[in-house]
């Protein structure tokens, strides 16, 4: 391998990120024999060489490798008493409704109707999703502790659930379709990243 070929291969690696191991070996041999190329790109060759042998790129130190995390994680989990299935029904309080204000967001898929009670201690929020072909639709949000709360289907294919929420707060939620697919509310006024590659709908009361 000469200097020209060496440079061509470094360019090739830059473009597609891969080189055959025998090419890398030849580059290494060239580098050992050529002070000029060594001066120019010894450090860069380290990247090419290291990345081509990535299984040994960073061997875990033995103490990390050998430490078994099971006991400590299980202890953390039980300490936090995280429960996935609440046996208790979702409890919500609805105070006397004086439908003084009704706001309707959208009409095609998700519809949220807000009715502010005159006592202003609670807002009744009607979550609606038009999904006639779904077998089940649940509401899952921070106000349900992310436990699914099943919606009721009406004759028009709308899934509906009214719940009472404290005003002056923001809530995050999703719809869960057929117990499997999470979707944000298509008609929400805002959706934000949930930090796990999905979206959460936001409702500001």
């Amino acid at each position: 391998m000469n200097c020209k070929e060496y440079k061509e291969f470094t360019e090739q690696w830059l473009t597609n990120g891969k080189l055959a191991q025998d090419v890398i070996n030849k580059m290494e041999t060239h580098l050992a024999a050529c002070p000029l190329c060594r001066e120019e790109s010894r450090s860069f060759f380290q990247v090419i060489n290291s990345f081509s042998r990535s299984s040994s790129l960073d061997q875990l130190p033995q103490d990390i490798m050998e430490s078994d995390l099971r006991a400590s994680i299980m202890a953390k989990i039980s300490n936090k008493s995280i429960q996935f299935k609440s046996k208790k029904p979702f409890i919500y309080r609805i105070t006397a409704v004086a439908a003084s204000l009704i706001i309707i967001f959208g009409a095609v898929f998700g519809v949220i109707t807000l009715q502010r009670s005159n006592q202003s201690t609670e807002v009744i929020v009607c979550f609606t999703l038009y999904a006639p072909e779904a077998s089940t639709v649940s509401l899952v949000g921070d106000f349900t502790d992310w436990h699914p709360l099943e919606l009721d289907l009406d004759q028009q294919g709308n899934w509906i659930k009214s719940i009472g929420l404290k005003p002056e707060q923001s809530y995050l939620y999703n719809f869960l379709i057929n117990g499997q697919t999470w979707i944000p509310d298509p008609q929400a006024d805002m959706n934000i990243d949930d930090g796990f590659g999905g979206k959460n709908s936001v409702i500001n009361l």
């Binding site: 953390k76 989990i77 996935f84 796990f196």
Partner: peptide, 10 residues
Amino acid sequence: FVEIYKSLPR
């Protein structure tokens, strides 16, 4: 892992 556990329902 704690985060994975907490997020499993999702």
